[in-house]
Amino acid sequence: MTQPIDTSIYAAVTAAIQGEAKRILSEGQVTAIVGYAAARRKGSAQPIVISQPDDAQKLIFTPACVNNLAVYLTKAKKEIPKTGKIGIVVKGCDLKALAGLMGESQLKRENLYLIGVPCAGVLGSTIQPDTELTSDSIAPKCTECNERMPPECDFVPAVQVPVNQGLEKKYAAEIARLEALTPQERWAYWKEQFSKCIKCYACRQVCPFCFCEQCLCDRNKPQMVETTPRPAGNFAWHIVRAMHLAGRCAGCAECERVCPMDIPLNLLNRKMAKELKELFEHEAGFEVQEKGPLNSFTDKDDQSFIK
């Protein structure tokens, strides 16, 4: 049954973001702020980088603010952090990505001014931007979100996030469904999904953790992974991608959102997150961790699978 989701706080959040952005820009605390602004289509939003106090009024927060802005601090946009201390508007899920990036020496906390957003959820990737946020239109990741107030930020608007009761956990349900299948059935499922892949690498481009300057999958000496968009190459790419993100992925689901072929990429990430939690009690969180689950160990780790 479709149930509405209360997004009434978003207006107050927008106002608070604008006020804070204006203040820190005019006081010179930051040189730029990465946030969301209204885009051309009705109700839509897009990322924006502002550096003038007057532009603060452009900032918004709506259910259409789906992007994880953390990606604008690494990779192609590396020059932005170099200009000085940067403000960034973050939802809880995005903040986890930032914490991960700090743990991997890609960002420093002291170079960031975190504007946390109390978030009741954003729209799913296939939903029109001016749609009302409901239990049907909400992004699947938001159905599993427990941290709607990002902690340890420099500024968080003082509003209470309404509690959404009883949203069905979409990934957990889908993972459970797939786990119940036979290996052959799972293979058939993923073969179908991966064969849709056109190797556009949008998933790689949008992922804050795919910050390698040269991707393993682009290398040809040796060619570890076939680069062509043939089924075999696609399969290898998606496995390598999931493995490289295991223990690092913060669950922003941007890969899945940007996939033009609607491959359920975040399912793989969530599955790995679930396994790492069960195996090593690791979960992506807000705290900067010195070591991830796959570059640390204990002498008591599970080895029931080893003969």
Binding site: E104, S105, Q106, F211, E213, Q214, G292, N295
Partner: peptide, 13 residues
Amino acid sequence: EGGCVGCFACKKV
């Protein structure tokens, strides 16, 4: 060095 992005996973292990 050309490819290294300084995530220091190597240092951790």
